[in-house]
Structures are given as structure tokens and as C-alpha cells.
Deep mutational scan, measured.
Amino acid sequence: PAHPYDRLKTTSTDPVSDIDVTRREAYLSSEEFKEKFGMTKEAFYKLPKWKQNKFKMAVQLF
């Protein structure tokens, strides 16, 4: 299930529990994912792991 970005980011005051914290981005809706990352999930997962992590750090999901 998708969760709002505000509850997934590492600085959230009301974090979602029971998620894989190493894959926070996977819980974003497709729309919100595209808004935050500027690309689709499919394109994101084709990137090298280090680049994925760099993007995730930039949007507080790492």
C-alpha cells in the first residue's frame, strides 16, 4: 500500500511503522514518486544503487 511522503521521510514526526526502511521510496504512490524524484519508479530502479541512494538522500528517504 502507498503511504504519504510526509510519513515516509526520515525526518517524519509521524513515521509509518512496519515498512522496509531500506526501501522507503517503494511505498510512495506513482504520482508522488514522480513528483519527488522526477522519474518513474521503473526508471529509478534501473539506475545504479549508488545513484538511487544519492536521489533518496536528496529527498530524505535514506
Rank of each mutant, 00 (worst) to 15 (best):
P1W: 04
P1S: 12
A2W: 15
H3N: 06
H3W: 15
H3L: 12
H3A: 05
P4I: 06
Y5W: 07
R7S: 04
R7C: 14
R7P: 08
L8S: 01
L8C: 14
L8V: 09
L8F: 04
L8I: 09
T10G: 03
T10D: 09
T10N: 14
T11L: 04
S12I: 03
S12D: 10
S12T: 08
S12F: 06
S12H: 05
T13S: 11
T13A: 11
D14M: 11
D14S: 05
D14I: 07
D14T: 07
P15Q: 06
P15R: 04
P15E: 04
V16H: 04
V16N: 02
S17C: 15
S17G: 13
S17Y: 14
S17N: 12
S17Q: 14
D18E: 09
I19W: 08
I19P: 03
I19K: 03
D20K: 04
D20E: 08
D20W: 01
V21P: 12
V21K: 07
V21Y: 10
V21T: 11
T22A: 10
T22F: 02
R23N: 06
R23H: 10
E25S: 03
E25Q: 02
E25A: 05
E25R: 09
E25L: 08
E25Y: 04
E25G: 02
A26T: 10
A26C: 14
A26W: 15
A26Y: 12
Y27C: 13
Y27A: 06
L28C: 09
L28P: 04
L28I: 03
S29I: 02
S29E: 05
S29N: 09
S30N: 14
S30W: 11
E31I: 08
E31G: 09
E32V: 03
E32P: 01
F33K: 00
K34E: 14
K34F: 15
K34R: 13
K34I: 13
K34S: 14
K34W: 14
K34D: 08
E35V: 09
E35F: 10
E35H: 09
E35W: 11
E35M: 08
E35Q: 14
E35A: 10
K36S: 02
F37G: 00
F37D: 00
G38Y: 05
G38M: 08
G38L: 09
G38S: 04
M39W: 02
M39N: 00
T40M: 03
T40K: 06
T40S: 13
K41Y: 08
E42S: 11
E42W: 05
E42P: 04
E42N: 15
A43H: 10
A43R: 10
A43G: 05
F44K: 00
Y45I: 03
Y45A: 06
Y45C: 10
Y45D: 05
K46M: 14
L47S: 01
L47A: 01
L47R: 00
L47C: 01
L47G: 00
P48M: 00
P48F: 06
P48A: 05
K49Q: 12
W50P: 02
W50G: 02
K51Q: 13
K51C: 15
K51H: 08
Q52K: 01
Q52T: 01
Q52A: 08
N53C: 12
N53F: 10
N53K: 08
K54R: 13
K54D: 12
K54M: 14
F55N: 03
F55M: 15
K56Q: 01
K56V: 08
K56D: 01
M57H: 12
M57R: 14
M57Q: 11
A58H: 12
A58N: 10
A58G: 04
A58E: 14
A58K: 12
V59C: 13
V59S: 07
Q60K: 11
Q60E: 15
Q60L: 15
L61S: 06
L61K: 05
L61N: 10
F62A: 15
